[in-house]
Design a binder for these strands. Sequence first.
DNA 1: CATGAATGAGAATTCATTCAT
DNA 2: AATGAATGAATTCTCATTCAT
Lengths: 230, 230, 230, 230
Amino acid sequence: MKPTRKSPARKKTPVKSGAPERPKRVRRNPERLIAAILNAAIEEFSNHGFSGARIDRISKRANTVDRMLYYYFGNKERLYEAVLEEVYRNLIEEQRQFVPPEGDPVNGMDELITHMWEHYMNHPEFIRLVMSENLLYGRYIRQSEHIKQVSFPLVRIIDEILKSGKKKNIFRPDADTNFILMTIMSMGFFYVSNQYTYTYWLSKELTPNLRSDAWLGHMKTVIFDHLMVR
Amino acid sequence: MKPTRKSPARKKTPVKSGAPERPKRVRRNPERLIAAILNAAIEEFSNHGFSGARIDRISKRANTVDRMLYYYFGNKERLYEAVLEEVYRNLIEEQRQFVPPEGDPVNGMDELITHMWEHYMNHPEFIRLVMSENLLYGRYIRQSEHIKQVSFPLVRIIDEILKSGKKKNIFRPDADTNFILMTIMSMGFFYVSNQYTYTYWLSKELTPNLRSDAWLGHMKTVIFDHLMVR
Amino acid sequence: MKPTRKSPARKKTPVKSGAPERPKRVRRNPERLIAAILNAAIEEFSNHGFSGARIDRISKRANTVDRMLYYYFGNKERLYEAVLEEVYRNLIEEQRQFVPPEGDPVNGMDELITHMWEHYMNHPEFIRLVMSENLLYGRYIRQSEHIKQVSFPLVRIIDEILKSGKKKNIFRPDADTNFILMTIMSMGFFYVSNQYTYTYWLSKELTPNLRSDAWLGHMKTVIFDHLMVR
Amino acid sequence: MKPTRKSPARKKTPVKSGAPERPKRVRRNPERLIAAILNAAIEEFSNHGFSGARIDRISKRANTVDRMLYYYFGNKERLYEAVLEEVYRNLIEEQRQFVPPEGDPVNGMDELITHMWEHYMNHPEFIRLVMSENLLYGRYIRQSEHIKQVSFPLVRIIDEILKSGKKKNIFRPDADTNFILMTIMSMGFFYVSNQYTYTYWLSKELTPNLRSDAWLGHMKTVIFDHLMVR
DNA sequence: CATGAATGAGAATTCATTCAT
DNA sequence: AATGAATGAATTCTCATTCAT
């Protein structure tokens, strides 16, 4: 009765004694292994995009073997989806932690812009994954029930800041939540996302001006120039 | 099992999927073939990114065979580089055609914004290729002597518009060319590039407001709010 | 890329496709579980053959997990053997139930043919498993002590019918049990086993004639034409 | 410009001088290579069925590498289909070569039975492939336009023999082409196809009688007993 | 008795690229 | 100048099976 596939027959004795020890894997700790895979996958997908990502690089970085990715995530696409969900989950978590100062809409808006900016600066992997997903025409975000259902805390916060500012006649009455949000996002995101190409556009002499804090300052200026009643 | 006799009457190769069906090709017209390959490659790379792009899809779309891509372009990377150069060349060509109205900086800026916006709207493949290139950390743009050397016509035009507006005391005196350019680019680019994800962020009720012409209007408002001396 | 913080609020394993969803299982009822596995295996092996059969499909259909198949049956091969034994056991059981009419060999033969035919018609999974086993060159049937030892009740019954018919000078004296049995088996088995290919052979106009009852009628005609003394 | 995939960088120097020379492959002779692959595939699929067949065994037997199977046949399924077509093509070719004796329907039928029988005896791989295909529910034969379109020469020949015999009042007037054909096929096919299992059924003492020539004789007896007007 | 976790060894297929004329 | 044939090296994923409690 020959087994169809050769039974594993583990090689206990390494051929060479100088051969590199296989790294000790985290055994019998699924949660930790899953987290390790997910983090490795975030790194890999963010670095190489979906097509460029390699399963074996992920498993190596997670200190496990390819097989385990399939065991826990099914296939490359599902792993990618899990990655997307994870970074969005993190984003939302951070937004939840954000509490704008009471009673001062100008300050509130200022801190909000700073908060969004810092997320972009601290999470280039988020930026890159979002770019990838857009290059994929939003294929996976569309599939993720999880992402589609949650709402983003900042939307309500902006809404409230704007309302408060309008009531006090500080902000222009026609300011629109989505437009303000999009303005902040676009300026913040683009600064990071397109850094490798726009430098070729700019007037070379002035480029050094474009340090990140200067750009954050500019963003705020532009937004308040637009928002404040004169 | 005894092998059956050799099929006596085999005339042609049977299935031939790997060896693609020979299409009628444009023969003896290298220029046309090269252009066809380049266009097919623009489409493919823009659609799938560098890693996701497939040589055989390009050759099929160009009505030729894989081999010819190598014949004319060397390898996938060089073809990608040629694609990047091509879309930048087209961009610059369009910018050269742009002539701002004489003597009216407000109008000039207005038309400039429109001009940039329209390029984004009309050339999603450009947007996507630039995204890809940024995901690749600008690897190929850095290699391209061609792209690095040219300067972008719009920079000088913006510069002149700003100078003219400042001289007339219409524009704020500290307006910076690069910052203005970046502002236009970021808002315009992001609107197209991230369309598949930001919708999940926005306040659902307000989303319909975000039609493209409304966004163009908003861009202009924001920029002039910032630019105009009050 | 810096690793994002470990997702702080991970509670459960995420996708878990490889590790199958835990179905509510029949616990503490080994007999029932074993039977469920066996039935699922009959279905699977009969449908896909030995190589094509999948352990996980069987376990899913049996509402259990892969591990249990190994627990109760050892490995795929032994499970397959158990399946073979099971269907043969069923066959023999049915044959045991068959009692030919006393004293009338013609009637006896007629009912016997019907009985065999009906087993084929009612048990396509038996047909398919037998085909599989033959494609495997009888590897498992040869190993099964169980199958090899039992004798098939019909052989003795045919033998008696033939003897009785010969004694009465109704059946030709040289009629051979094995040949008659083989004739019935071949015509009955083939009709079911090869149904997907022989249709391409037949004269298309006449195909509708080949309904199953017509074929049973033909079988009987042929056998009696051969058997009866003229 | 690192290539995405490592460029081949053929190892010209074998590590060990005792390492087995890689076999010289038939180069630049597509027709021969295709034929070699097809023959190897016939052997492999016939031996192991579709699921059990292994691409690498086929390529090894054809003295080539896996890649070439894909180059010429696309994938395993298409190769299997090509195999099916090939053995059917061979069958038809043999049938075309069969010319029944003029004017003597009894002799004609006799030789026809012999001819069919001999194809089964000489082509076990045909038998096994047909079994496989039936286990696959005729999936591939259904897809093959080629097989579906051709008609089998023997059908017309049987038809003519029967007509001739009926005209001469030798054969029973209600003899049906399809039924006769099916009878011959079923008895001939089954004898080979099920050889590994029916032996367990038969009366052990009589089994030696069942030599192949005896069975051919029995087939003829049965068919003529049925066919001849008494 | 039962089962969740883990896994080695394949297996089909893909992909860019070079060989050879 | 052009192209048909050939191909090495991955790459994703599958499959039966064992480890470990």
